[in-house]
């Protein structure tokens, strides 16, 4: 047993930790720096000059706005689908007893465990077998497969912590199914759903692999960025968009972290 728990870590460990953090975050800084460079064809260091012009260029380019709008639309719809289906599935698995329940639980989680490329290929071949033309909806379907998992896992964990007799108590006291959901179930699982939903949105927003196989001619924001890197034209534009993406994905993930942490506290207080 270690009694000297307060002893400071050896310098080698500190150096490794700092090195690791730098390795992870310096590239992010570089993206920020090159969003302001005056050089548009290559990434020379240090940048020859600094300018804000790329922000106005981004503002005027319709293809970027289309990509952003498509990504927001896909992520929103996929999240809504995931919230509805994920919650229903979690409720069924945690409340009801039926044949093959454990296998169904596993099947739900599988899409996030499988490499995206497998999900992508299988969806693409399914779409072609069924003669479904590629559209926004095929992207949404692809994203929904892994978004459901996130919501499902969050909701399931919360359902398992809430007492089943609470729902019966509500019904017993005269509340119908809708009132019980509104006054008892939703307050119990609300923060878990919010966290799951935000995580699902963030996952969908920067998804590349499954999207590549299910998008057809349309470009979501990550796909657009990939295309931009191949065609070296107005390179800093990509960096400006990257900053935007970092902001958009970081805010909900941070919020989800704080919300579930709060949920843990209220849940734990109930014992």
């Amino acid at each position: 047993m270690r009694s000297d728990g307060t002893r400071s870590a050896p310098w080698a460990l500190k150096a490794t930790a700092i090195g690791g953090l730098l390795f992870l975050h310096v590239p992010l800084l570089i993206i920020f720096v090159y969003a302001f460079t005056t050089e548009e064809k290559s990434y020379q260091f240090p940048p020859p000059g600094y300018t804000l012009k790329w922000f106005s260029v981004v503002w005027e380019r319709q293809d970027i706005w289309n990509a952003i709008w498509l990504s927001v639309k896909v992520a929103s719809i996929a999240t809504v689908i995931a919230l509805v289906l994920g919650t229903c599935a979690a409720a069924a698995v945690s409340r009801a007893r039926f044949f093959g329940r454990d296998y169904i639980s596993l099947l739900f989680i599988l899409p996030i465990a499988l490499p995206g490329i497998i999900t992508g290929i299988s969806l693409r071949s399914a779409f072609s077998v069924m003669d479904i033309p590629f559209s926004t909806w095929t992207i949404v379907l692809g994203h929904a497969t892994f978004c459901i998992v996130v919501v499902y896992n969050n909701a399931l964990a919360r359902f398992r912590r809430t007492s089943g007799s609470m729902i019966e108590a509500s019904m017993d006291l005269g509340a119908d199914g809708f009132q019980t959901f509104r006054h008892v179930v939703l307050p119990q699982i609300g923060s878990a759903l919010l966290a799951g939903g935000m995580l699902a949105f963030a996952l969908s927003f920067d998804e590349v692999i499954v999207t590549t196989f299910t998008a057809g001619q349309q470009a979501t924001l990550p796909i657009w960025m990939l295309n931009e890197l191949i065609r070296p034209r107005q390179r800093p534009v990509t960096n400006v968009v990257a900053i935007f993406v970092i902001a958009v994905t970081f805010i909900p993930i941070l919020a989800a972290y704080y919300l579930t942490r709060d949920g843990e506290h209220t849940g734990g207080a109930g014992k």
């Binding site: 609470m166 019904m171 119990q188």
Partner: peptide, 30 residues
């Protein structure tokens, strides 16, 4: 919910997100 019968549950099944007053008033609220 349509029976004029109420239950005291073995684990009490109180609603943890409501105050005691709101718990007791729940049946009247719905």
């Amino acid at each position: 919910y349509r029976r004029n019968v109420n239950t005291v549950f073995q684990d009490y099944a109180l609603f943890p997100h409501m105050t005691v007053l709101a718990n007791v008033g729940y049946g009247l609220m719905v």
